[in-house]
Design a protein around this nucleic acid. Sequence first.
DNA 1: AAGAAGATCAAT
DNA 2: TTGATCTTCTTG
Length: 209
Amino acid sequence: MTVKRDVSETFKQGKILLPEFFERDPVLCARDLIGVTLVHGPCRGRVIETEAYHGIGDPACHLFTRPSVRSLAQEFPVGTAYVYLNYGIHWLVNVLCRDRVTGASGFVLFRALEPLAGMEEMEQRRGLTIKEKLCSGPGKLTQAMGINHSQNTRSLLIDPEFCLSRNPAEPSPLTTVDRRIGISCAKDLLWRFLEAGHPGVSVPPGRAR
DNA sequence: AAGAAGATCAAT
DNA sequence: TTGATCTTCTTG
């Protein structure tokens, strides 16, 4: 009797990121998450845009303005998803980081994905079929992926149904750095990371105020 | 108890 | 440029 094994599928899915990945400065985590795959159920997307939010020296970070988020960062391990409702309408998903050396916490906000699988679900939830627009913004990607408050405080490092994975054989993409989008303070920090030249990002580099 | 601000999006 | 819509935090 032979064991059925779909090697190509395993290869495609990659390996779930380890806690060590997130035990670094949030800015490094944000940069290195470009090219990683975000998985939720049948939906998968390549991360093409992120932003770092830092517990130290960054007044735009929720760790500065929301005591409840400070508690979350203390009570949960790295790799935990922080999902919150923005403008009463959009769910935004972050992952928790904590620098092993400095002890500083922070988050990486997922801002855009290139859809890889589960496109039918994405199209249905978004009411669109244009691939480049399915996940081209932080609110859009959560809607497309079906991520909401029920994923808040859930680990992204354990369950293959909700995780960040990387194919070790795949080379890291060329990334671009830019200012963050939509914030009213700490605007000059170059803490937005994009896959260079990718058409599916939320706002092209150079257009942030 | 009430008010303000906010890491967005799609339509006008 | 605006309206939709609601959680969190601050102020009285």
